[in-house]
Structures are given as structure tokens and as C-alpha cells.
Simulated assay, not measured.
Amino acid sequence: MDPLSQPVLDALGFRLRPFEPKDAQLVREASLDPLIPLITTVPSNGTDKEILDFIDRQHHRLVERSGYSYAIADASSDQALGQIGLWLKDAGQGRASIGYWVSPRHRNKGIVSAALDAVSGWGLSLPEIYRLELYVEPWNEGSWRAAERCGYMREGLVHSWQEVGGQRKDMYMYSRLK
């Protein structure tokens, strides 16, 4: 099976592009965040090797056909500010899921909304995808407000949906349809 092909996406002042080794500083910052390593594959307090391994794993997602992992980068400087992914675990049923994070020092600047809108529009243009889903903890108002700004509808509260930091957590379920 051939690997997926990952386009670079324009996101209103930001670019969604594959991760590069130069993005190690961003991953290092994320690894020190108290929440990002709990809900992603970013290593907690990662060593240099663990951080480079994380970047390498993002490229393997294309080879494995499990999804697209993007660095969210400033369009003019190309500095990586966060990550957004379109995950294809349920693509056979016409669904994909989205996850995202932004480095703590880059939050509240509209980065997530720009990236989420771009990856969502592109994801729904894929012929096999009819529904995008994302899950957000109820306390994470910034994240669910970004989803709503991008046309996602809250479908409800899913109890004990995901383990986060060793505890089962409720999540708001959002969707955006083709």
C-alpha cells in the first residue's frame, strides 16, 4: 500500500506543513506543558531523542495510512506554533477525527481556529470522508469555542470517553459534516 501524500495547506497567515527536525523546540515546549503529553503522543519532559522520535512518528502516520499530522507554522517565518492532525482510524465508515494543540505561549491568537478551519475544509474534500469528529473536555472552553467558530456542532457529552492522566474523562463530542 502506498503512503498517503500530504499537501501543505494555507490557513490565513499560517501554513499546515509536515513536521521537520527544526520543530524540536516546539515539541520540547509542548512536552513541558502539564496537559499536552496527557492527551497526545508528545513525550512528557522529552529528551532530545524522544522529541526527534516524536517528529519521526508524525511522518510514519502517512506511511501507515493512519492520518495526517501537521505542524501549524507561521506563514512568514515558518516557525512551528502547534500541531493539528486528521486521523483516519474510522475512514472506512466515512469518518475522520481531528486533534490539535498549540504551544502555551502561542495560545489565544486565533491559531487553532485558522488551522482547524483549513484542515476541516480539506478533510471534507476527501472523497471517502463525510464526517469529521473532535472531542474536547468541557473545561477547555478555548478549544470548544474554536470548534464552534469553525462550524462544528456539539452533539452532546460523552461520559467516561477517554483516559487522560490515568482518569476517565467526559468529553464534548463535536462534528462537522460534508
Rank of each mutant, 00 (worst) to 15 (best):
Pro3Leu: 05
Ser5Arg: 09
Pro7Val: 12
Val8Arg: 15
Val8Glu: 15
Asp10Asn: 06
Ala11Gln: 03
Gly13Leu: 12
Pro18Ala: 10
Pro21Leu: 14
Lys22Pro: 00
Lys22Ser: 09
Asp23Phe: 00
Gln25Gly: 14
Val27Lys: 02
Arg28Val: 05
Glu29Thr: 05
Leu32Ala: 13
Pro34Gln: 09
Pro34Asp: 14
Ser44Glu: 15
Gly46Ile: 05
Gly46Arg: 07
Glu50Trp: 01
Ile51Gln: 07
Ile51Thr: 05
Leu52Ala: 08
Asp53Glu: 11
Asp53Lys: 06
Ile55Trp: 00
Asp56Met: 13
His60Phe: 13
Leu62Ile: 02
Val63Pro: 00
Ser66Leu: 10
Gly67Pro: 02
Ile72His: 01
Ala75Pro: 00
Ser76Cys: 10
Gln79Ile: 12
Gln79Trp: 02
Ala80Lys: 13
Gly82Glu: 13
Gly82Leu: 10
Leu86Lys: 11
Trp87Lys: 11
Gly92Cys: 08
Gly94Ser: 08
Gly94Arg: 07
Arg95Phe: 06
Ser97Arg: 08
Pro104Asp: 14
Pro104Gln: 15
Arg105Thr: 11
Arg107Leu: 07
Asn108Leu: 14
Lys109Pro: 01
Ile111Ala: 10
Ile111Glu: 07
Ile111His: 04
Val119Leu: 08
Leu124Asp: 05
Ser125Val: 11
Pro127Glu: 15
Pro127Trp: 04
Glu128Asp: 15
Glu128Ser: 10
Ile129Arg: 12
Tyr130Asp: 15
Tyr130Gly: 12
Arg131Tyr: 06
Leu132Met: 14
Leu132Phe: 09
Glu133Asp: 15
Leu134Glu: 04
Trp139Glu: 15
Trp139Ser: 09
Asn140Val: 06
Glu141Trp: 05
Arg145Ser: 09
Glu148Pro: 00
Glu148Ile: 09
Gly151Asn: 12
Arg154Pro: 01
Gly156Trp: 03
Gly156Phe: 04
Val158Phe: 08
His159Ile: 08
His159Tyr: 07
Trp161Pro: 04
Val164Trp: 01
Gly165Asn: 05
Gly165Met: 12
Gly166Arg: 04
Arg168Thr: 05
Lys169Val: 11
Met171Trp: 01
Met171Asp: 03
Met173Gln: 15
Tyr174Thr: 07
Arg176Phe: 01
Arg176Gln: 06
Leu177Asp: 00
Lys178Trp: 09
Lys178Met: 13
